[in-house]
Every structure is written in structure tokens, then in C-alpha cells.
Design a protein around this nucleic acid. Structure first.
Length: 424
RNA sequence: GUGGGUGUAGCUCAGUGGUAGAGCACUGGAUUGUGGCUCCAGGUGUCGCGGGUUCAAUUCCCGUCACUCACCCCA
């Protein structure tokens, strides 16, 4: 094998693309139902955009971005979707057009991490962003939408975790409190956690390292230092989730790795399917400061992204797809000529039609027809041509009949059920 | 980036210090034109790559690469 795909960047072959299409269609439907419209932004952005929005000392920016300089321009393959979408909002001044903007996006993201189950270097996210609504009702609606969407798809064993990171003042205050607790215990922390002590102590809270978990168990909770406004928002979120009937768990140590979150942050996880330890299906939160940071007016915002590969891993095995369309099996030169025209007519009538002109015995032709997944096989040999008919076989019902050539299209359309779809 | 596991047919895997197998898949056939089940037949492998030990390596040793799981991180 001379060439391989780049590590961590997988092909999605036709045997899987059907599942992707269903997943994407379901996401689009739910997003549309909630009033979101699709926005498509570039995969490549100026490196500085991600540094500014995601945060300089985050792992993503420090070591996971595909960055390069091209003709004096520092560019980066997007590691997440929110920054580009927020940039587009500001660049086109769309905050001035409507008080609230609801956008969704879909597409590949890139992070240079070591691949493992549920973690790729090129992976796909679908996400929604709401600009201009300070919440917390819309925060809850977003979370409930994800739960509905995943449930609709068939993902089992969902759990919702929520937390509040408070506003900027709260965050600074909590940072000090946490540092006050952790610094004296630095010796008990893991190496990575200790290294993070100065730069980003909050991140130590969601370490999975047993030592860190133990140390953090008794750490002060951010929920205890929320100010009145933060608390009102968080209480409002909980009340709205209760009103929606969406179960959740409060996790005071839920921090997440992007610096831009304020107030609400959340994660949706599952233990279902073939998910490994990477079991966060969707995550998000409020980022009230980002739009201003990118040069726009102060605009509250919230959003989430979900990992499509992970959702696919969590999904149960799909039912085998039903037989559909026609397989044309001509035998001989004259029959092939006739079949060519027939196939074109079928397609014009909205019937999926596959022509196999390779010839062979009728047995092998039928085997191929069967293997193709077609509902109907149209056999056209010298005997049929001589009588002006085609043999139309229903591969599912094991029924067959000779049909006069002019009626074959209508007959096949009826059998495959394609006519109605084509007409509507 | 750190640690563990695994690399044999298209796929899933077995196997042995003496140059390799099964199942599935694929293709063809089973009274000269009838699919799925059944039966028969058919083929491919640099045994990941490089080096070492040995009369002899797919098997043992070292290195390397790839894949994979976990940490880390996050979707």
C-alpha cells in the first residue's frame, strides 16, 4: 500500500455514509424546528482568531492546532466552530439586523491529538449558536434540544451535566480561592496538574488522574462563590430545565477546556454503544464576552457542538436498508441497447435504475441483481425481446411476470414505490 | 506528548524454528435461461518493514513503522 490517509483522518465509505446522512438530516430537522438557520463559514481562519477566542493557555491553542504560515499569513484549520461563526456575525454586522440570531453549522474540525476511539484529528461537529439572548431560558432550550435530538436518534443512557462558571468577577475570585486550596497541596497533584497550577488552575478540576480527583474532592466549589447575578442565572437555568422536564446533574467541577465560557456550561454524555472513554457527545456553554472580544458590540451568546463520530459510535446497529430501485439485466447486444433506453426512462420517472451490461448466465445476473439490493430485476433476453416484453421480477416477493415493453416503466415504478415520490 | 496491546488472504482470525490455514466475502458451476438456503469448485499472501541469532525465521531477539486502547485533552 503506497498511500495511506493522514493519521487520524478517516474515509467515510458508502457503507457508512447512509448513517451520516440520517444523522445530519435529523440534526438539521431539530435545529430548524428550533428556529436555527444554517451558516457556512470557512474551514481556514486566521490563527489569531482562535488564539483570541479559545484562549492562549488552552491545550487546543498550545498544542493541538494545525497552523501554518502561508505567504506571511498565519492560518489555522479550525479546531472548533464557534470562533468562525462569531467572527462571521461580527464581520457582517448581523447583530444589527436582528436582536437575536440563531445559527447552526455542520462540518469538519481539526485537532492534532493522538487518535483513539472517539477522537480523530479530522472529526465532524454539528453545532448551534444563539446570539443576543441573555438566557437562561434559551440555555435550557438548547440543552433540551440536544437531549431530544439524541433520543430521537436512538442514543441511550444519556446524562446531562451542568455547571456555572459565573461572570468574569466570579471567575477571578474563584481562581484565587482554588489556588489557595491547591497550592499547599501541589505535591499531591499529578505532574500535568501541577504544571497547570499557575496558568489555568480551573482545569485541574476535571482531571481524571486518581491523585487529582482525590485532591479536588474537597476543593471549594465555584457554586459557593457565585454572585447574585450569577446565581439568578443558574437558578433560572435549573428552573427552565425542570419546566422542560429535562433531567440533569449539577457538577461543580465541570470546567471544559475552552476559556471563553461564562455562566452556563454543560456536557451531554452516554455510556451506550461502542463509545470508549471519550464519551462526551456534546458540550457547550455561554460565552457572553466573545463577540465584544472579536470587535463587535457586547452581545450575550450561547452555543454547543456535538461530535458526529461519537454519536455514531453510541448509536445502535441500524436496520438493514430496504430493497429499492431496479436492476436491469440484459442478455445480448440487442437487449443491451433496449435496456439502455429503458434505464433512462426509469430514471426520468424517478426510479433508481442500475444497468449491468456485463452479461453472463442468467443465474449470475440474478445473483448480481440480488446482491445489488435492488427491489426489482428486469430481465431482457432474446426470448423476451422476440415477444416484445421484459420479465419483471420482484426480488423481495419472489414474483415475476412478463410485461409488455411500453408498460415496463410504470410497472417497475409501482413495484418500487418510486412513482409517488417522484410525482410529489 | 506518556504508557500498554496488536500487526498472517479483501474482512475476522488460527498456526508452527523446516518457506501457511479456517470461516466469511468474492467468482463460477449443480440436465444448455431463474436470486437469497444448500452443495461443489476457484484464486491471491513480500506472514507490516529493516536488521540480528540460526543450517533454516512467519515463529526467537533488537529496531522501526502502522493500527489500537488508556492517560492527557475534548466533540
Amino acid at each position: 500500500m503506497a498511500f495511506r490517509a493522514v493519521k487520524g483522518m478517516n474515509d467515510i465509505l458508502p457503507n457508512a455514509s447512509g448513517r451520516w446522512q440520517r444523522l445530519e438530516a435529523t440534526f438539521r430537522r431539530h435545529a430548524d424546528l428550533h428556529g436555527f438557520e444554517e451558516v457556512r463559514v470557512p474551514i481556514l481562519e486566521h490563527t489569531e482568531l482562535f488564539v483570541r477566542s479559545i484562549g492562549e493557555v488552552t491545550d487546543i491553542v498550545e498544542k493541538e492546532m494545525y497552523s501554518f504560515v502561508h505567504r506571511d499569513e498565519a492560518l489555522t484549520l479550525r479546531p472548533e466552530g464557534t470562533a468562525g461563526v462569531a467572527r462571521a456575525l461580527v464581520e457582517h454586522k448581523l447583530y444589527a439586523t436582528a436582536p437575536v440570531t440563531r445559527w447552526y453549522y455542520l462540518g469538519p474540525m481539526f485537532r492534532a491529538e493522538r487518535p483513539q476511539r472517539g477522537r480523530l484529528r479530522q472529526f465532524h461537529q454539528a453545532g448551534c449558536e444563539i446570539f443576543g439572548d441573555p438566557g437562561p431560558a434559551c440555555d435550557a432550550e438548547l440543552i433540551s434540544m440536544i437531549v431530544d435530538l439524541l433520543t430521537d436518534l436512538g442514543v441511550a443512557e444519556l446524562e446531562v451535566a451542568i455547571n456555572s462558571l459565573g461572570g468574569p468577577g466570579t471567575r477571578a475570585r474563584y481562581r484565587q480561592a482554588l489556588l489557595g486550596y491547591l497550592a499547599p497541596r501541589a505535591g499531591e497533584l499529578s505532574d500535568t496538574a501541577r504544571a497547570r497550577l499557575e496558568a489555568n488552575p480551573l482545569r485541574i478540576l476535571d482531571s481524571k488522574h486518581p491523585r487529582d480527583v482525590e485532591v479536588c474532592a474537597a476543593a471549594p466549589s465555584i457554586l459557593d462563590v457565585l454572585d447574585a447575578e450569577d446565581r439568578a442565572h443558574f437558578d433560572g437555568l435549573r428552573a427552565a430545565l425542570d419546566a422542560l422536564g429535562t433531567p440533569y446533574a449539577v457538577e461543580p467541577r465541570l470546567v471544559r477546556g475552552l476559556d471563553y465560557y461564562t455562566h452556563t456550561s454543560f456536557e451531554i454524555r452516554s455510556r451506550a454503544g461502542e463509545l470508549g472513554s471519550q464519551n462526551t457527545l456534546a458540550g457547550g456553554g455561554r460565552y457572553d464576552a466573545m463577540v465584544a472580544e472579536l470587535g463587535g458590540p457586547g452581545t450575550p451568546a450561547i452555543g454547543f457542538a456535538m461530535g458526529l463520530e461519537r454519536i455514531l459510535l453510541a448509536l445502535p446497529e441500524p436496520a438493514p436498508s430496504p430493497r429499492r430501485g431496479c436492476f436491469l439485466a440484459p442478455m445480448g447486444q440487442a437487449a443491451t441497447s433496449r435496456a439502455l433506453g429503458l434505464a433512462r426512462e426509469l430514471r426520468a420517472a424517478g426510479v433508481r435504475a442500475e444497468l449491468d451490461a456485463r452479461g453472463g448466465s442468467l443465474r449470475s445476473l440474478l445473483r448480481r441483481a440480488d446482491g445489488s439490493g435492488a427491489r426489482v430485476c428486469i430481465v431482457l433476453g432474446d426470448a423476451e425481446l422476440g415477444r416484445g416484453v421484459a420479465q419483471v421480477k420482484d426480488l423481495e416477493l419472489h414474483a415475476q411476470e412478463d410485461v409488455p415493453l411500453p408498460e415496463v416503466v410504470a410497472h417497475a415504478a409501482a413495484l418500487t414505490g418510486s412513482a409517488a415520490e417522484a410525482a410529489s
